[in-house]
Design a protein around this nucleic acid. Structure first.
Lengths: 242, 242
DNA sequence: CGTTCTATGTGAAAGAGTTCACATAGCACT
DNA sequence: AGTGCTATGTGAACTCTTTCACATAGAACG
C-alpha cells in the first residue's frame, strides 16, 4: 500500500484507511510540498537562465509568496541542499528537485480523446520542454482516426490497450466525456499504465497501484464564484444596520 | 495555502453583536471544503437526473471515496440541510450548494489568449452548461483578430480593458504565454475584474481583492512522476530506516 | 401516541501541515 | 587561526483539517 497515494484534499486515489501504520516508513510527503517543489523547479530554471548562481530560501519564498521556513522545510524532507550562511546553489538544487520529482528521464504519454481539451494537450508546447513526450493519440471518431493531428496520427481507441503496451506508455492524459471515462480507465489500467491525468469531472475507480490526478477547470471556476459571492455577502453584512 | 488572496479583514471589525446572531459566514472555510462542495454538486445533478430523491452522507461519501463525517462536516459549515434518520433531499441540497458557491446566477467570462488552451476553453461545452457564459475572446495575433472562433469574434487585446469593462466581465481565463501573463494581469485588474483563472505557470501579482486560481497541468503531471518514481524507490527502501 | 430505528449535526480528539525560533555550519575577512 | 556574520536545518509550537463518537431529531409503524 502506497502512502503517496493517500492524498488528503482530493480523493483521487482509492484508499480505505484500514491498516495501522506499517513499520517504519520513510515519511509521507504532503501533496502541497510536492506541488511547491514543481514551482521551485520552474523558478530555478528561470534563475539559472538568468545566470543566478545562488538563492536563499528568503528570496525563493518572496517570489512565490511563501515563507522562507516553508521553503527550507520542503527541501529538508529530501536532504540538505543548501550551504549555511550562503543559500542554495541554483543549478545543483534544480538537478536535485528534478531527481526527486522523477524528472531525470523522459516520460511517455498518450492522449485519449481529441476533442477541445485533447487537441490542446497534443499541441501543448510545454510538455516536450518539460520531459513529457506524447507518443500516441486516440479517439473513437472515425473522421479523426488516421488523420494527422499536430504531427501525430490519431489511433483508433479500439487499439488502446495494445497501443499503450506496445509503446510502453507511462502516463495517460484522459480527455474524454465523463460518460465513457470509467470504461476507458479500466482499459488503461489493464494495459498496466499507472499514471492518469484526467479531465473528466467524475471519480475514477482504479486499483491502488494506479495514481490519478484530476484537472478540473469548472471546479476552479466555482472556487472563484464562491470567493466572489461570499465577498459580496461579507460587504453587505459589514454594513452596520444600526 | 493556495493562491486565493487572504480574505480576513475581520480583525478590524470589533465583534459587536448588534445584529441577530444569524451569522452569515463566520469562519474561514477551507479550500478543500469548497472543492468538495463542487463535487457534491455535480454528483447531486446526476442523482437528480436519475430520479433519486434522498441521499445519505454515507452514500454521498462512498461514491467519492470520502468519509461520511467529512461530508456532514462540510455541509454543516453552511447549515443543516438534512433530515435526521433520513438523509439529504437531493434537489434541495443541490439548490443550497449552488447558492453557497454563487451559482444561483450566470457568470460572464472572457478568454484571453486563443492558443491551444484558449481554443479549448472557447469550445468547452461544460462552461455554458454550468452557468459560465463566454462573452469575449482576446488575442494579440493579427491573423486571429476579427476571425470567428466557435461563434465568437476574437477581439484585439489592445481593447482588453475597455472590453472587460463594457461587457461587465466577472472572471477572466488567462491562457497566454508566461512572459506576458503579468502585464496582461495588470490590465485585467485595472478593468476591475476580480476573478482570474490562469494557465500560466507563474505567480501573478495581484491586489488582495482579486482572486486567482491556477490550473497547471505540468504540475499535476509532475505529481504523477513523483509518485511513480518514489514508488519504485520505496520498494528498495522499505527494508530498513530508523 | 409511543417505541424503535436510522442518519444527522457537532463538540472533542486526533492527525497534518505550517510557522517559529534558534543552534550551528560555513564563508569572508583580517 | 580567529572572529563575525548570515542563512540553513530542524525540533517544538501552533494552527488548520479530518475523523470520531454520540446525543438527538425525525420517520415509520404498530
Amino acid at each position: 500500500m502506497s502512502d503517496i497515494s493517500e492524498t488528503n484534499s482530493e480523493e483521487n486515489i482509492a484508499d480505505i484507511p484500514s491498516k495501522p501504520a506499517k513499520s517504519s516508513r520513510p515519511k509521507r510527503i504532503s501533496d502541497s510540498t510536492i506541488h511547491r517543489l514543481s514551482r521551485y523547479l520552474r523558478l530555478l530554471g528561470r534563475l539559472e537562465a538568468d545566470g543566478v548562481k545562488t538563492i536563499s530560501s528568503k528570496e525563493l519564498a518572496s517570489i512565490k509568496r511563501l515563507t522562507p521556513a516553508q521553503v527550507r522545510k520542503d527541501l529538508s524532507f529530501f536532504g540538505s541542499f543548501g550551504t549555511r550562511g550562503l543559500g542554495y546553489p541554483v543549478s545543483e538544487l534544480k538537478v536535485k528537485i528534478s531527481g526527486i520529482l522523477g524528472l531525470d528521464h523522459r516520460w511517455r504519454l498518450a492522449i485519449v480523446g481529441v476533442g477541445n481539451i485533447g487537441s490542446a494537450l497534443v499541441g501543448h508546447k510545454e510538455f516536450p520542454e518539460r520531459g513529457f513526450d506524447i507518443r500516441l493519440v486516440f479517439d473513437n471518431d472515425q473522421r479523426k482516426i488516421g488523420s494527422k493531428h499536430k504531427g501525430l496520427i490519431v489511433s483508433d481507441i479500439k487499439n488502446l490497450k495494445e497501443g499503450l503496451i506496445a509503446e510502453k506508455i507511462d502516463i495517460v492524459a484522459l480527455a474524454v466525456p465523463a460518460s465513457v471515462a470509467q470504461e476507458i480507465t479500466d482499459v488503461i489500467v489493464e494495459a498496466g499504465v499507472r499514471g492518469i491525468l484526467t479531465f473528466a469531472p467524475i471519480h475514477l475507480d482504479t486499483p491502488e497501484r494506479v495514481f490519478v490526478r484530476r484537472e478540473d477547470m469548472t471546479m476552479e471556476l466555482e472556487y472563484l464564484t464562491y470567493a466572489l459571492s461570499s465577498e459580496d455577502i461579507k460587504s453587505i453584512n459589514d454594513i452596520d444596520l444600526s
